[in-house]
């Protein structure tokens, strides 16, 4: 049996780990599992958690009255590196390699660190992926460069707009409008051949693949609320991309 102070501190560490994971795009069951593992390794035998994409509820049951805490998640990105790092920390806690203070120090470090690939490298990757998708979707190599540039410009503008306007839907909408316009310009100047292939390749980096996969995994694991809300988020993104392209197409 832990005293109240200790219970609070353990819950702090659990919530911190859960928060980082959820913000970085981990599946719901992994977040719950990680928090429960950390709690039981550090001495809270009974814990319950309820995780949705926007909030974590975590409750420790080892002494009366039970303590329950809430953490609000307002922004979610995709940062798989942080998921791996928190997973490692949780594994080390379970194996008894590190104690509470060391775990807290490491998690704080992960929370504040900037581990993303540099911005330009990401844009380059998006551009490269767009070009490759043209070939994968049976396009010709003559459309590789147009898709490369359109895809890079689209991804760049989505990130840029998202910094200016906090509404993700709008950023994605504007980004796909830009993709449509750039692709159309390539066709006008006879630098690209198939408009369809260029646009399809260029929008692929914006496609909500991670959300879609996680939504399905959450639903199957029984996290119905999380699964549905992630599915809704994926649908919103797909709708934003689709309507952005539709706006451009309707002017052709």
């Amino acid at each position: 049996m832990k005293n109240r102070e200790e219970t609070y501190e353990i819950m702090d560490v659990c919530l911190l780990a859960g928060k980082i994971m959820l913000r970085s795009g981990a599946e719901t069951y992994r977040v719950e599992d990680t928090m429960q593992r950390i709690a039981s390794a550090l001495g809270i035998e009974q814990s319950h958690s309820y995780v949705t994409p926007t909030a974590i509820l975590f409750s420790a049951e080892d002494r009366k009255p039970e303590t329950t805490r809430l953490a609000r998640i307002s922004e979610r990105t995709t940062d798989l590196k942080k998921v791996v790092l928190v997973n490692d920390v949780s594994r080390r806690i379970s194996n008894g390699i590190i104690d509470l203070d060391e775990a807290r120090r490491q998690l704080r470090e992960i929370e504040t660190s900037q581990l993303m690939f540099s911005f330009w490298l990401q844009v380059l990757a998006a551009a490269l992926a767009s070009g490759c998708f043209v070939i994968m979707f049976q396009g010709g190599w003559y459309d590789f460069l147009p898709a490369f540039i359109a895809g890079g410009a689209g991804y760049y503008s989505v990130i840029l707009f998202h910094r200016l306007i906090p509404v993700k839907f709008f950023a994605e909408f504007l980004g796909s409008v830009i993709i449509g316009v750039v692709s159309y310009l390539f066709i006008i100047f006879h630098l690209g051949v198939e408009l369809d292939k260029i646009i399809i390749g260029a929008v692929m980096p914006l496609v909500p693949g991670l959300l879609l996969t996680n939504a399905v995994r959450d639903l199957m694991a029984g996290h119905l609320v999380s699964g549905i809300s992630k599915g809704a988020e994926a649908f919103l993104t797909a709708f934003a991309i689709g309507s952005g392209i539709a706006v451009v197409l309707s002017f052709l």
Binding site: M116, A129, C132
Partner: peptide
Amino acid sequence: VTSFIASAAFGVIFNAP
């Protein structure tokens, strides 16, 4: 070749290790 590059590029976008 293209599918390898495209998937690895997505690894970069998702910030995989």
